[in-house]
């Protein structure tokens, strides 16, 4: 594939000027570890850093240094190794999230294109079609908000990424939870077959005591799902995340087969 469009995207990206679908598209490209773009970005950041020297002179307020030094002195310097270890898994998960955003964007573009064509055909359908389109966009925006909140969570060193593996009826299913004990997180699922009629998937958080219901979620035709997970009351730790197949609407305690679970 011709790489030139990415050269243009890389320049705007380095400058922080990329937006909309192109930003999503380029981040997905970066997630594939494009060596050429890595060089372009590295050189662009150096050039743009050098440009900082063209700002009019200003003396940093002395109280900032003092504030920083007291802040540092107040925190025990033991956090570093943990941070380093957590970092390893982030590019992969960020890439997966970016790819999912691209998929959502493409779905949006397809839906929009489809409905736009119908608009041309019959003026009568105009209003109804617009409303449907708006609903689709609202749904996609919700999905995008989920990915954004996941990306925000990933910046917090206390955030963990927990992998869920398919069990029993759906061995090919995968999932992961981006989890922060006090903030909550996001569940992402792939390759999970849609549930049988009048059944639904329900997520459980298991810590001390009985499993706690963490909401039911819907799977799309491709077997994907995203689901917001609220923190456990009192910010208590979660040891295991599990998904079971339950009667529609969900139940307060698990009854059906387990289809996904994280390792203990």
């Amino acid at each position: 594939m011709n790489h030139e469009p990415f050269d243009t995207l890389a320049a705007a990206y380095a400058l922080g000027a990329l937006d909309g679908e192109e930003l999503v598209e380029f981040e997905a490209h970066l997630a594939q570890e494009c060596a050429r773009c890595a060089v372009t970005l590295r050189e662009s950041y150096e050039a743009l850093a050098a440009l900082a020297r063209s700002a009019p002179p200003a003396v940093p307020p002395p109280e900032v240094k003092q504030a920083l030094l007291s802040r540092i002195a107040a925190v025990a310097p033991t956090a570093s190794p943990r941070r380093e270890r957590g970092r390893g898994s982030l590019p992969w998960i960020a890439g997966a999230a970016a790819a999912a955003i691209v998929a959502a964007a493409f779905t949006g573009a397809f839906v929009a294109g489809h409905y736009e064509a119908r608009l041309g055909q019959t003026a009568r359908e105009l209003t109804a079609t617009r409303q449907r389109l708006e609903r689709e966009i609202a749904a996609l925006n919700d999905q995008l908000a989920a990915y954004r909140s996941a990306a925000d969570l990933l910046r917090d060193p206390a955030t963990r990424v927990v992998t869920l593996r398919g069990l029993g009826p759906s061995p090919g299913a995968t999932g992961w939870v981006i989890w922060h004990q006090t903030v909550g997180g996001q569940l992402f699922v792939a390759n999970l077959p849609p549930p049988p009629p009048s059944k639904t998937y329900e997520l459980w958080t298991i810590g001390e005591g009985a499993p706690r219901p963490a909401g039911v979620f819907r799977v799309d035709a491709e077997g994907r799902a995203t689901h917001r997970v609220e923190p456990v009351e009192g910010g208590k730790p979660v040891k295991v995340f599990a998904v079971t197949l339950e009667p529609e609407g969900g139940v307060p305690a698990p009854t059906g087969p387990m289809v996904l679970a994280s390792a203990k």
């Binding site: 922080g16 850093a49 941070r83 380093e84």
Partner: peptide
């Protein structure tokens, strides 16, 4: 200070690392 462990000299100068963050 908190993210110092994430700095990778192969990916750019300290100046670029810091200026990019400051701009963002």
């Amino acid at each position: 200070w908190q993210g110092a462990a994430g700095y990778d000299p192969a990916r750019g100068s300290p100046e670029a690392w810091l200026v990019t963050r400051a701009r963002t």
